[in-house]
Design a protein around this nucleic acid. Sequence first.
DNA 1: AGTTCGGACCGTT
DNA 2: AACGGTCCGAACT
Length: 183
Amino acid sequence: MNELLVKTRSAELSISTRDGKFIARYSERGLAGLNFPSREALVASTRLAEVGRRRKHRENGHIPTKILRWHRTTTTALKNVLAGREPKKIPPLDLSGGTTFQQNVWRALQKISRGKTRSYGEIARRIGKPKAVRAVGGACGANPIPIFIPCHRVLAADKKPGGFSGGLNWKLKLLALEGISLQ
DNA sequence: AGTTCGGACCGTT
DNA sequence: AACGGTCCGAACT
């Protein structure tokens, strides 16, 4: 109806990898979401010919060059990660979808350098809420940009894997790619 | 050593 | 009001 209100440019673009087809979602602020390959997408990419099932980019049909640039950065960064290498550059991340608490957790996660791990309790302290341990776990599960916001580097206090909403196998794989071994 | 259990704790729905 | 990607100590084996 009101065109001005619908002017928000966002896009969903796919990234085909050996491990399946990821889907990146962009807002006007940057990368806002990165989804692991779904089971269907994985099956489709490995078994069936890719039908021209276009990913929708909303509204007017042309993708802003800004987003296309970000997507190239995302693509090479993701492929580097999956190849066990540290990405040189990642796109700007849009965390505005989360609550203040979640954003604080996500920012703390970004400070965990590659190859290192923290516990949920350590993250809770780092954001000044030492008792909000389980809530930190919840915020990790709500992380919209896994891999780039490295929630997989958060382990239980006893160095056991803990959980992972994207599937525990992905967490173990990402840790292994960084040379992290757990108990 | 290792494991299991129960309660405490906090943000989200 | 209930649920979690938790943590800690206690009480076992």
